[in-house]
């Protein structure tokens, strides 16, 4: 994979006018795919909406993993990193469903579940993002 010492210059090249169309199509396809996976996962919903929590956690791991690679100066990783992080992980994770589920849990006086859903969707994605970043950094060495 070609490398460049200045990540910003690489980004400028990848996000050039002729590549922009490919990026938009790629983000659409990967974002659609992530959304379909999330819809499948969302049916795992018992005491808590576990499926959405799992999707948010997995997606955060992907975003964390991609970050060091996309900032390494690799042209390929800037392109694929955008499709994986902005497309796949962005489609797989959701903020709006989390807000809906947490609010309705709180309104229904299931405040223990509401609180748990609030805290877990805060903590697990962050932990996954850090773990992903560590993995991505190790892979770079």
């Amino acid at each position: 994979m070609p490398r460049d010492s200045a990540p910003e210059r690489v980004r400028g090249r990848v996000f050039s006018a002729q590549n922009f169309g490919f990026l938009v199509i790629g983000v659409a396809v990967f974002g659609g795919l992530g959304s379909v996976i999330r819809l499948g996962l969302s049916h795992w919903h018992s005491y808590l909406p576990w499926g959405i929590l799992l999707g948010n956690t997995l997606a955060s791991g992907v975003v964390g993993f991609v970050y060091p690679l996309a900032h390494s100066g690799s042209v390929g990783w800037v392109f694929w990193g955008t499709l994986l992080a902005t497309g796949l992980a962005g489609g797989l994770s959701t903020f709006s469903s989390w807000a809906a589920q947490t609010l309705h849990l709180m309104v229904n006086r299931e405040s223990r579940q509401g609180f748990l859903n609030f805290v877990l969707n805060l903590a697990l994605p962050v932990i996954a993002a850090v773990a992903g970043m560590i993995l991505g950094s190790i892979l770079l060495k």
Partner: peptide, 12 residues
């Protein structure tokens, strides 16, 4: 709405 919003970007 699910595709437009993101939790992974927020965690990062």
């Amino acid at each position: 709405a699910g595709g437009f919003t993101t939790m992974s970007g927020l965690a990062l």
